[in-house]
Design a binder for these strands. Structure first.
Length: 601
DNA sequence: GATTTCACGTA
DNA sequence: CGTACGTGAAATCC
């Protein structure tokens, strides 16, 4: 089957779009786009297919998706660019320059629209063109207020086709999976537009009930809101007479409040205060207050009002990859909704959810990306930690901690003995992790299994260490592992450094080690999601949530079982395609539920 | 007004 | 048992 590239580009400010390729040369209104693309999707029922090429799904596919068009294959230039160079910046001009091997640091500046704007350099494209004489793409193209004429929009479409073809060449040289990764990353970008359109089905009454329980009734005035807030505060403040004026939202004042009650703490974070919960009434009240305050401020009445539509769907923006390793992100609480609110996430009448999550995804991904045959053999088990524990001669919980420590931790401490066992049993996987850590120390960029660049030399050279982890990061310096000469602190960068990594260097090493696993897992997840999207659409199924290793699919209840089967089959198929073999087994726990809270955790 | 710090939710 | 992200309130910077 041949797949033909067809450009679909839009200029939203001009309310026009263009379709170019496969004999099609069309410019028209945004409203007319769905008919054009669906006609192209439908051609050659027994033979060829099309792959739509666009600069970025959020711009070029938005109008088609908003009007209900059903798109299948695509090439998203921005997502392909993010694979090639890492990070998140991905304008058409930048992607074009990279694809054409032009210096990306010398992009022509965008016009400012003022008197100083008119400073021709002799490179500007002629009328109806978008490519400059110096080879760069015109800076105006694709900007928010751009209003090209029809000929220019067609040139913009041609440029997208050209750019995609060159990206494919680059990716084919990057590695054996990079072109396939571009396909699934592109599908994820399209899925993101659909996720933003469709939203997450909610039971509004249940949401209101849960919010009321945590944050009080819906206030009917500002005064009422202040009253409810004061009542919530009072429960804590009355525990410490004489401190009724403390601002509980001010950490400094809270620290003083606790000190006056005999609780001396360096900060007032939950994990610091938790040990005092049993013995201190004010601490217990404060922690309960924090929980309620979180719901009230972040997931309360304002949130419901702002982000949940009249159709009882929670909506937020989605991105197909973050700036670090390539996970999907979502806004408005879609990715961090407290579990206590999950009962409110409910299938709508006549529908159910098929919920599925990938089991033990990260060690299984480690087996695949490292090519460790012994660890791959362990993935045959439903519970990977069982055969690992047997190999090491330890209890399962010890094996689990050891594996997680090897992948993310400081490789020392309590799990030390078991770690040595891992070195013997899975030397290929452990060596892979060591090399990732060492590459991080040396600021050498890495690539995920699918070929996404993980830059460690520029943006991420300054890894920020979260405040709550600072102590642990410094432990790496204070207590280097005596048991093993890690690749990190021995000699490899001995030229300038004395050999002992700083806390910051160690953080970068951990980041690198984490990013190749987390990023590769994100790629498999998106390949899975893209396959589910493609293979369940005929059942009326909608993917309504993607949560790193978990999918929530909203489907008419008569198709529940079939959808579940296809979700499971999709994992088998996409994992085989992604790894190129069946050596590593991936497992999904899938079930049919009505409320998200019914999922077994 | 923009940025940073603190805190905490999810995976 | 580490990493990543998004959000809000208050403090801080300019």
């Amino acid at each position: 089957m041949a797949v033909h590239l067809v450009a679909l580009v839009a200029a939203p400010a001009a309310r026009r779009a263009a379709v170019l390729g496969r004999g099609e040369l069309w410019v028209g209104t945004l409203d007319a786009v769905p008919d054009r693309v669906e006609a192209l999707e439908a051609v050659d029922p027994g033979g060829d297919a099309v792959r739509f090429v666009w600069w970025a799904a959020g711009v070029d596919a938005h109008a088609a998706v908003a009007r209900g068009a059903r798109l299948s294959r695509c090439w998203d230039v921005a997502e392909a660019h993010r694979l090639i160079v890492g990070g998140w910046e991905a304008t058409p001009q930048s992607a074009w320059a990279t694809a054409h091997r032009l210096d990306r640091s010398r992009l022509p500046a965008a016009s400012r629209g003022d008197l100083f704007d008119f400073s021709p350099t002799g490179h500007e494209p002629g009328p109806g063109g978008v490519v400059r004489a110096d080879g760069y793409l015109a800076p105006e193209g694709g900007t928010a207020h751009w209003r090209p004429d029809d000929q220019t929009l067609l040139a913009w479409a041609q440029a997208a086709l050209d750019c995609a073809a060159r990206q494919e060449e680059l990716l084919a040289q990057t590695g054996p999976r990079a072109v396939a990764a571009a396909h699934s990353e592109s599908a994820a970008a399209l899925l993101c537009v659909e996720l933003a359109r469709d939203g997450l089905p909610l039971d509004r009454a249940r949401a209101e009930q849960l919010i009321t329980e945590a944050a009080g009734p819906r206030p009917d005035s500002d005064a009422h809101a202040r009253e409810i807030r004061a009542a919530r505060d009072r429960v804590v403040l009355e525990q410490v007479p004489g401190h009724e004026r403390t601002d509980l939202r001010n950490p400094v004042q809270v620290k003083e409040l606790l000190a006056s009650a005999g609780v001396d703490v360096p900060n007032t974070r939950k994990w610091v205060l938790e040990p005092f919960r049993e013995t201190s009434g004010v601490v217990a009240a404060l922690l309960d207050w924090r929980k309620a305050e979180r719901i009230a401020t972040t997931y309360g009445w304002g949130w419901l009002e702002t982000h949940v539509g009249a159709d009882d769907r929670l909506r937020g923006g989605w991105t197909a990859c973050d700036g670090a390793a390539g996970r999907m992100t979502a806004q408005n609480g879609l990715h961090n909704l407290p579990t206590s609110l999950r009962p409110a996430v409910a299938a709508h009448p006549g529908h159910v959810f098929v919920r599925a999550d990938l089991g033990q995804i990260e060690p299984r991904v480690l087996a695949a990306v490292s090519g460790d045959a012994a660890l791959a053999a362990a993935t045959r088990a439903d519970d990977l930690y069982a055969p690992v524990a047997a190999s090491l001669g330890v209890e399962r919980p010890v094996a689990k901690v050891a594996v997680l420590a090897a992948m993310y931790g400081q490789r020392s401490g309590a799990a030390g003995e078991a770690l040595k066992g891992l070195e013997r049993a899975y030397p290929v996987a452990m060596g892979f992790l060591d090399r990732a850590y060492a590459a991080g120390l040396r600021r050498e960029p890495m690539r995920t299994f699918g070929g996404r660049l993980i830059p460690l030399d520029t943006v991420l050279a300054d890894v920020t260490v979260d405040g709550s982890r600072e102590g642990r990061a410094e432990d790496v310096v204070a207590v280097p592992d005596p048991g093993r000469g890690t690749a990190g602190d021995t000699g490899r960068d001995s030229g300038r450094d004395s050999g002992r990594d700083s806390g910051r260097d160690a953080a970068r090493g951990r980041f690198a080690r984490n990013a190749v696993i987390q990023g590769s897992a994100a790629e498999l997840f998106k390949a899975w999601a893209a396959t589910v999207r493609a293979t369940t659409r005929d059942l009326g199924a909608q993917i309504v949530l993607c949560l790193h290793d978990e999918l929530l699919v909203h489907v008419p209840q008569e198709h529940a079982e079939l959808t579940q089967q296809r979700v499971e089959q999709a994992l088998t198929d996409s994992a085989r395609r992604w790894t190129g073999s069946t050596a590593v087994r991936f497992v999904a726990d899938a079930s049919v539920i009505s409320r998200w809270s019914e999922a077994k955790g």
